[in-house]
Design a protein around this nucleic acid. Structure first.
Lengths: 105, 105
DNA sequence: CAATAATATAAGCAAGTGATTATATAATAG
DNA sequence: CTATTATATAATCACTTGCTTATATTATTG
């Protein structure tokens, strides 16, 4: 069973613009830290720390591929999160452009 | 249009156990402050202040009836909030018992 | 091995948050 | 008008949060 308190804790994670942006990007496709830094125009540690919170809560999973760690959503078992995600505005074109470019440098 | 930032701000409001509990109660039926204090076992100013935040964000509306102010949800125009609400665990029996009792003292 | 790139972790700090206590306002009852 | 009940507001405080800067770790390349 999922308690109100657990749900509140997960929603609290979505209640931050940086994390919600990360999620709106990961809805489209997986991405690694350097991509997210580019798209969201912030620092690498900032993104890393937000990703850690999302990972600790089980909302994202990571997949290391050599030097890069790709993050993706893991919300199949979280209907109240899925419900929110459905109504997020689409992440912009910029996302695809950057994501389709070469890994980072 | 609703921006990611606006949605994040609304989700932030749901990301607190007291407020999410309030919402889960108001899904069932309207309630006044004294009811919520009873059900959630906290202080009157605490409930009042959470209700104010919810009201400022347009998530609840108030309806004064004499001495009492009844609060109810106002989320018809907020699909991402509705989506969350659908997946909240039902508020307990206790709620109905107290809500069906006489107004507060 | 050394240099570089991607990511993680740690420390510090300013700003925000949730709760409590005390007080004010508003409506009703007598 | 006075007392009481319901609610709101204000002040305070411990705690949390998001971001930055600095440093560590891990993998790749030559």
């Amino acid at each position: 069973m999922t308690t109100i308190e657990t749900i509140a804790d997960q929603l609290k994670l979505l209640g931050d613009k940086t994390r919600l942006n990360i999620i709106s990007i990961l809805v489209q496709q997986e991405a690694c830290v350097c991509h997210l830094v580019e798209i969201l125009q912030t620092t690498q540690p900032n993104i890393s720390q937000h990703l850690r919170k999302l990972k600790d809560a089980g909302l994202v999973k990571e997949d290391r591929r050599g030097q890069w760690i790709y993050y993706s959503l893991q919300i199949e078992d979280k209907p109240h999160i899925q419900a929110v995600v459905e109504y997020l505005p689409e992440a912009e074109e910029k996302v695809k452009t950057i994501l389709n470019g070469l890994p980072c440098k």
